[in-house]
Amino acid sequence: MEQEALVALIPRLRRYARALTGERFRADDLVQDTLERALSKWALWRPGTDLRAWTFTIMHNVFVNQVRRAALAPESLDPDAGLELEDRSASADTLAQLSGLNSALQRLPDEQREVLLLVTLEGFSYDEAAHTLGLPIGTVMSRLARARGRLALLLEGDGATGASQVQLKVVK
């Protein structure tokens, strides 16, 4: 059954959505909306073409719409809503960076974060990423370069402060 191929993609959609939104609830909403959209457009998918790219394109569109809508709406009233509490049981350098990673990632512009995650986390080729996002390959490469440069600064330059910010939120 073709839909089982979609089921098999769910874990990857969730991983990507979590890294993209930085929040558990928003991520699962994004996946759920994506699946519903995919099913409503199921007739448009041509068997034999890349279901993964097709589904990630839908997720990209849903995400862009959600961001656009959120821009029209006021900020959340509950300052703790959706806050990701990181697990920091040890203080090794890697763990400090790991705990700051999610917040650093969310400080990248959306369009840079999308490219970075598709290429590094999802292992899309530049060509696949360009196709998925509907961009020229040159744009994919320049966004990727900017994302990596900025993330490196955020992680290295301010890895320590990033971690202590998270700690403050936990205390509160």
Binding site: F25, R26, D29, Q66, R69, A70, L72, A73, P74, S76, L77, D78, A81, G82
Partner: peptide, 18 residues
């Protein structure tokens, strides 16, 4: 345009609880 809702759909879990 700017304030159609108090809590936006991006925060649906909170909206539901509240």
């Amino acid at each position: 345009v700017r304030h159609p809702v108090e809590v936006s759909a991006s925060d649906e879990a909170h909206l539901t609880r509240w």
